[in-house]
Design a protein around this nucleic acid. Structure first.
Lengths: 207, 207
DNA sequence: GGCTCGTGCGATACAGTGTATCGAAAAATA
DNA sequence: TATTTTTCGATACACTGTATCGCACGAGCC
């Protein structure tokens, strides 16, 4: 289990094969089936284990609580990039996941939200946003790292490709936006969307 | 290509293997490498082809435009469930994807947003939300279908599992929420979060 | 204590996967 | 037409997740 985590952190999710994990423990391929029925189950255990790392939500207002939850998940995904790939992919009901939901709900209640429908609503909506935001940020981070390691490919393939596309004249607004808009970092976009979401909740809930 | 799409629609993304796609065309396994360098590239073509199906954004206000974009993507994911698995996973720069972004930006401008930074900001934030919302809704749909087909497993495994978990007394708030909160359908949660997001934008942008 | 029997374990086997290789066929050049 | 170059796809390879099943080991009985 910890072996699987370490392997995923070190070499990425696609390197996590039952053989390699078992090999890291000096065991045969089928050894893991004593603890797990299928590979999906191993992945779910890994996800649950990350939920177990998440810090207690903090903050006195519900907005601060939601912000701290969001940042906790984002930070975890930056530590374990594979977490982003698994997030939202299967329903997760592991003990640590349930405990994290419990802590989140309790923190919201402590911050003054007493209606369960409201609590669940804001938490579910935040979850939807987080799944996508974290996923896209990690994707972008990987892309940047790849083009950083190999800038030649970027300059010889992607850039001329975009130039050709723009030269067709089919994308005038997009071209203008790419040229004129200031480039926001992934972290900025994350904050931006989170801000919109929380502000919308605050007005909608009249809190 | 169309063969890959049909295969993914019919049997799911994991059934899309180069051999099966080529087989559907009465060709050898390597035949596809004439059109594609790697399997990832095939998947990217599939994603781009779905972007090509998306309807023109409609609406006279920017909020209506964003709503129509959101619904267009959601409907596409409901048609092609595998689309949700691929969304946000890799950077997509296909022609149809670019065209979709172009149409979205143009529609926003036509609806009165003239600042490129604002246009990009709301579109990126919406994108983050959509990736997660669509992904989770499809996941949930699959889970419901699976337990629908095989309700015995749900009743003999998941339900007692949750009951045991609650019986530990570690999740009092969660237990209360599960019992007392009204169950929202995936579509409702999608709308709820989208409403929060748009309302937040509207107040933040003072439009 | 010795012997049988049942059970659980994990090496081996299998049906797949994505893709590198390389001989042959086709196209282009002279 | 002869020769070179390019294109192409069948075969091979390394690897995946998991079903199978012979074997070793421990419990139960005489």
């Amino acid at each position: 289990m910890q072996a699987a985590l370490a392997l995923a952190d070190a070499e990425g999710l696609e390197a996590v094969s039952l053989r390699k994990v078992a090999g890291a423990l000096d065991a045969g391929p089928m050894r893991l089936y004593r603890y797990v029925d299928t590979k999906q189950e191993l992945l779910e255990l890994m996800v649950d284990s990350v939920y177990g790392e998440l810090p207690e939500p903090t903050g006195s207002s519900w907005a601060e609580v939601l912000r701290s939850i969001a940042n906790g998940i984002r930070d975890a995904a930056l530590r374990h990039e594979w977490f982003a790939d698994l997030l939202g992919g299967r329903p997760h009901f592991g003990p640590a996941t349930l405990a994290h939901t419990e802590r989140s709900l309790a923190a919201l209640r402590a911050a003054g939200i007493d209606d369960v429908d409201t609590m669940m609503g804001v938490l579910e909506a935040l979850d939807l946003y987080l799944i996508g935001a974290v996923r896209k940020e990690i994707t972008q981070r990987r892309a940047e790292r790849a083009t950083g390691e190999n800038e030649r490919e970027w300059q010889h393939k992607t850039f001329p490709y975009m130039a050709r596309m723009f030269a067709t004249g089919h994308y005038p607004t997009l071209e203008e936006a790419v040229h004129d808009a200031r480039h926001r970092s992934a972290a900025e976009v994350f904050e931006l969307g989170l801000g919109y979401l929380l502000e919308g909740m605050s007005h909608h809930l009249k809190l």
